[in-house]
Every structure is written in structure tokens, then in C-alpha cells.
Design a protein around this nucleic acid. Structure first.
Length: 552
RNA sequence: GCGCUUGUAGCUCAGUGGAUAGAGCGACGGCCUCCGGAGCCGUAGGUCAGGAGUUCGACUCUCCUCAAGCGCGCCA
């Protein structure tokens, strides 16, 4: 398969053929990497898994498998423990791994898992009521990286931001801004600040802008007209700032989808009618209710349209997801939500089932809180109270690369301590520099190599380089890259790649320190290995949206 | 009360049924005549929250208990 390593494929096929010779029709068994050095370079536990179906002792099966194993890369086979098959690889394997990785250039690791199917990733979707903070940054980094990884693994990806531009929150935003407008003009007693209003300083800034643009005319205007103007102005202004922050954070969207669009085109009501027609909604106490199927996990029926005729947020969300799956034909939909919305998943899945789609095609990635730490202390944040550190401030301080790397280092559903002091450090205690440095170091070597009038040759790598442990381990890391990509893509988990990149960088640094690369007996081959490592590091960084600098 | 998530080294966390549980930071001790020392090598550090079960085999799956966070609204 394109993107995989040919040498690795041959090795795994040898295992599969050996298993088939036992009378098993098909198997997807592949070699694993044993933890313990004494257990060889690759191991398989297939014999133990097959013991039941074959009704033989695991160790006997293991012996048969090892006798059947035929592969040009295998130097020695042992059976061990309860029924492990341990394989020792020859040097040709590592040489071929590097040659194949280099030959595939930018496509190395680009395994096709998606078959060009349409998938939508919806993320950030922060309400335009205030600036993005570090938590939104985590969602942005995650959604964007997942989208990059899916693209790399053969999915047809669309990135979308859902703009909650109608409803109560925007009303509150407008009223908050209008209240500040009156306040600045010394008429604070004539329009009171809403109870759950937005208290951040940015609201004052927007009010001042309106004063500069429109003067004092809203002091005399009817409240409804003023609020309409203020909410529209403030929301657009804030949305503009959000877009600027996202662009700076290297996050691009294909579409900003407006909630207002759903209402203006009557799509919410038509979705509700469809549910009613199909028996998934009923009226009671003057409201319209969604009939939850208990099989999907939600425990009670939910209101769709209130007795006063106003649809709930859930109703818009049903219409929105109907639009994704049915109107726009996405075969798979991935939403990135804050973990505090987890109770909502069952409800939306139930709705997706009710519209005749498979809820398994809908994934929600939950992101836990980001705990910002400065000077060893937690910085508390609350959007409404106006106490928060904005994403933009974090980027000013730590830079885009450190911010993205840190936000993607952990799996999304565990909370992160974002240590501002560590992120700012330019040293080996900061993992992002460690990884970037490996890349810059490779580039430095390549520059030096070319300065000496040399270049990467077609000549095969001299196999005896791989009698050195550091070279073998680096080549082995490179051999596993396609597997890491598969894992990151199928579990929608960029942190797999940050962890892998750090290990790969470590393997390269060790290789570098174990002996000279240029001006060595096998320098042509050693440069090739370095070059392959540099390219894989660069690809990892690209997939998490971090720069791979040539100089630092 | 019910549900979701989390609990692994001093700290922050990896580990989607395989062998003796790993990494980074922090601590301690070494390595520059040399391609980039933003680096490398080594040492110490564990009741995988606790208990039971399934399995040839459990950090991983099931159940119970404990602890933390978050949900359970005709809010968004």
C-alpha cells in the first residue's frame, strides 16, 4: 500500500503466510516491537491467539510458525515464553527501510484509510461574544491537526466553524455593549448593564468605536433599534478578531456556517416537522419534545420547541447536523466540543439516528480544560467575568510553535497544565525545541555536506552501518512511522505524533552523538539516514502545524 | 440519586489483551581537538487509587468501592 514501508510489508506478509500455512484462511496479524532487547527486533503473539481455534499448544504453534517463516530480512527466529515468536532482523532490513522511506519522499506515511470519503471536522465554533482564550486554542490546534492527519490519510476533509450568531447570548452581548456606551457618555443610569453581561474590557473598546463612528445618536434612539445595531456591530467586530487570531495560529477554515442561516431558511422548523412526521417528536404541555430512543444512551425526552414557540439550542443543532449529513452529504462528521458538553453527545447521536443516519459516523472529540500556569501558579479564567488570558496573549508570549505543540502533547480528554514558563524556555527542557532542533541539525548537516560538493547518492546504503545500535534504532523508528500515522488517524489523536516526534528526535540525537556523520567511512549512508530522519520529523511537525526550521 | 471523564515515578503524562510498566521535567554523576552542547551517556525513583472477576496472559475488558472534575433545564 502507498505510504507504507515496503520492507515492513514484506516482513508482515511473511508472518501472515506462515500463519496461513497452518490452515488459517486469512489473518491481519502483524509483528510487534518487543520491549525487551533479548526478545529480538520483532515479535508475534499470534500463536497464543490461535491456540483455541487450532486446539494445539501455543508453543507448538509458535514452533510451526517459525519454521514456516520465509523472509529475506530474517536472520534468526526463536520461540520463547508462553508461545512468542521472536525475530532478529538482518542489516538489509534497515538499509531497505531507509531507501524506501527516501524514495517515497513526501508521501512516506501517507497511508490511505479514507478512500477519499467526505468528512467534516467542525471545531472552535466559539460564540462571537469575546476573544479566543487558551481553551479555544486547544480546540483549534486539535481540530486543525486532526484535519491535517485525515487529509494525509486519504480523507476528503472540510473544516468548518459554526457561528452561534443568533439567540440570547448575542442579545446579551448587544446589551452589554450598549450599557457601556451609555456609561462612557455619562448616562449610565439610563441603561443598566445586563445581569449576565460580558464584563471584559474589550466591550468598552467596541463601545468607544461606535461612539467614534456614530456619535451620541443612540442615546435618543428606541432601545430595540439600538440593541439590534450594537449586537450586530459587536458580533462582527469580535468575529473579525477571532478570525485574525485563528489565522495567526495557522488555522484555516473552509467554511463559517451561520446559525442564523438555519433560521432564516426555515431549516430548523422543517427539521422539526420531519421528526414529527417520522414519529420522533410529539407535542405535550404546549411544547414539542424529542422522543429519545433509550438504546442510544440518552435517558429522557428533550424539549425541541418551547411553549412560547422559540426553538431550543438542541433544535438548531439537529437542523445543523441534518444539514451536514443529508443536505451536504458528509459521510462522516467530527465535532470538537468542550468537555462540559459531554452530556449532549447521546442526544445528538439519537437525533442522527432519527434522521436515518448511522450514529457511528459521528464522532465527538471532547477537550478538557487548559490550566494556564505562570510562575508556578494557576491563572483562573472566566469569560463572562472578563478575567482570562487570551490566545493572542499566549501567542505573543510563547509563540505559535510552542503553543501548538504544548496543546497537542496530551490526549484531548485529559486536562493540560500549560506551563507558560516552560513554553518560553529555549532549552532542552522544552520539548518543542528538542524536536525542532533535530530538524535544524539535519539541515545543518545537509548544508555542510553540500558545501563539500557532495549530495545524496543513488548508491545503496552500506549495510555495515547497522551493526551500530544507534543506527538500527533510528532506522527502526523510521520504519514504524506509517504505523504511527495509522494510529493517529484512526484514533483522531495528534498527541500520538508529538510523542513519536520526540522519540524520533531522541533517536536521531543519539545517532548523531554516536559517531561522525560526514567525514566518516560510510558517510554517504549516514547522511541518507539523517536525511530520512529529518524528513519524517518535518512531516510530523507539519501534521501538528508546527514549523520545521532549517536554522535556529 | 443517575450518567460521562479522569486516577500510572517527587511533578506533568504515554502506554486501544502480550513477556521484566515507559518518556519528559526535577534530583544526582559523567561527556566538547570533532558535522550545530538548544545535544549525548549513566544513576536513583512504582502497591498502575483499592478490591473482586473474565483470560493461557490484565495498566488495558467486566463489576463493586474510594477520590477529583463535569453533566443530568421549556439555558446556551
Amino acid at each position: 500500500m502507498k505510504g507504507e514501508n515496503n520492507a515492513v510489508i514484506k516482513l508482515n506478509e511473511a508472518l501472515q503466510n506462515a500463519i496461513k500455512l497452518l490452515g488459517i484462511e486469512s489473518t491481519d496479524e502483524v509483528f510487534e516491537r518487543p520491549r525487551n532487547e533479548g526478545h529480538g527486533d520483532r515479535a508475534s503473539s499470534a500463536a497464543m491467539k490461535l491456540a483455541k481455534t487450532l486446539r494445539q499448544k501455543p508453543l507448538d504453534i509458535a514452533k510451526k510458525i517459525s519454521e514456516n517463516l520465509q523472509c529475506e530480512y530474517i536472520e534468526k527466529v526463536e520461540t520463547a515464553g508462553a508461545g512468542f515468536v521472536n525475530v532478529f532482523l538482518n542489516k538489509k532490513f534497515y538499509a531497505d527501510v531507509i531507501e524506501d522511506a527516501l524514495k517515497q519522499e513526501n508521501n512516506y506515511g501517507s497511508v490511505n484509510l479514507g478512500n477519499n470519503k467526505k468528512v467534516q471536522v467542525e471545531f472552535v465554533s466559539a460564540n462571537p461574544t469575546g476573544p479566543l482564550h487558551i481553551g479555544h486554542g486547544r480546540g483549534a490546534a486539535l481540530g486543525d491537526s486532526v484535519a491535517r492527519i485525515l487529509e494525509f490519510t486519504g480523507w476528503n476533509v472540510q473544516r468548518e466553524y459554526y457561528v452561534n450568531d443568533s439567540g440570547l447570548q448575542i442579545e446579551t452581548l448587544g446589551r452589554s455593549t450598549l450599557a457601556r456606551y451609555f456609561e462612557i457618555l455619562g448616562q449610565g443610569n439610563k441603561f443598566s448593564f445586563p445581569e449576565n453581561g460580558y464584563k471584559g474590557d474589550y466591550i468598552y473598546d467596541i463601545a468607544k468605536e461606535i461612539i467614534n463612528l456614530e456619535g451620541e445618536k443612540f442615546l435618543e434612539m428606541p432601545e430595540n433599534e439600538s440593541v439590534n445595531y450594537f449586537k450586530k456591530y459587536a458580533a462582527e467586530k469580535i468575529m473579525g478578531e477571532i478570525k485574525n487570531d485563528l489565522e495567526r495560529f495557522r488555522v484555516k477554515f473552509d467554511k463559517f456556517f451561520s446559525e442564523g442561516f438555519l433560521h432564516e431558511n426555515n431549516l430548523v422548523m422543517s427539521a422539526m416537522n420531519e421528526l414529527k412526521t417520522n414519529g420522533f417528536a410529539y407535542e405535550q404541555d404546549g411544547a414539542l419534545w424529542f422522543k429519545t430512543e433509550d438504546t442510544i444512551g440518552d435517558d429522557k425526552d428533550r424539549v425541541l420547541i418551547r411553549a412560547n414557540g422559540v426553538p431550543t439550542y438542541f433544535a438548531s443543532d439537529i437542523a445543523y447536523h441534518r444539514n451536514k449529513f443529508i443536505t451536504r452529504g458528509f459521510e462522516r462528521v467530527i465535532d470538537v466540543w468542550g468537555a462540559d458538553h459531554h452530556g449532549y453527545i447521546a442526544r445528538v447521536k439519537a437525533a442522527i439516528k432519527a434522521m436515518g443516519k448511522n450514529p457511528d459516523d459521528f464522532d465527538v472529540l471532547l477537550i478538557q480544560l487548559v490550566n494556564l500556569i505562570r510562575d508556578g501558579k494557576t491563572v483562573n479564567m472566566s469569560t463572562r467575568a472578563g478575567e482570562f488570558v487570551t490566545l493572542s496573549e499566549v501567542l505573543d508570549e510563547a509563540g505559535v510553535d510552542a503553543a501548538r505543540f504544548f496543546l497537542l502533547m496530551r490526549k484531548s480528554d485529559s486536562k493540560i497544565d500549560f506551563d507558560m514558563d516552560l513554553a518560553k524556555k529555549q532549552g532542552n527542557e522544552n520539548p518543542v525545541y528538542y524536536v525542532q532542533y533535530a530538524h535544524a541539525r539535519v539541515c545543518g548537516i545537509m548544508r555542510e555536506y553540500e558545501k563539500q560538493g557532495e549530495k545524496i547518492s543513488d548508491e545503496k546504503i552500506s549495510e555495515n552501518i547497522f551493526s551500530e545500535k544507534e543506527a538500527r534504532e533510528l532506522a527502526d523508528m523510521i520504519a514504524f512511522f506509517p504505523d504511527e500515522i495509522k494510529s493517529a488517524s484512526s484514533t483522531l489523536a495528534p498527541h500520538v505524533l508529538t510523542a513519536y516526534a520526540a522519540s524520533l528526535a531522541g533517536a536521531f540525537h543519539s545517532f548523531y552523538n554516536s559517531g561522525r556523520i560526514i567525514d566518516a567511512p560510510d558517510s554517504a549512508g549516514r547522511v541518507k539516514i539523517s536525511c530520512a530522519a529529518g524528513k519524517v520529523v518535518a512531516k510530523c511537525l507539519e501534521l501538528i502545524g508546527v514549523n520545521a526550521p532549517e536554522r535556529m
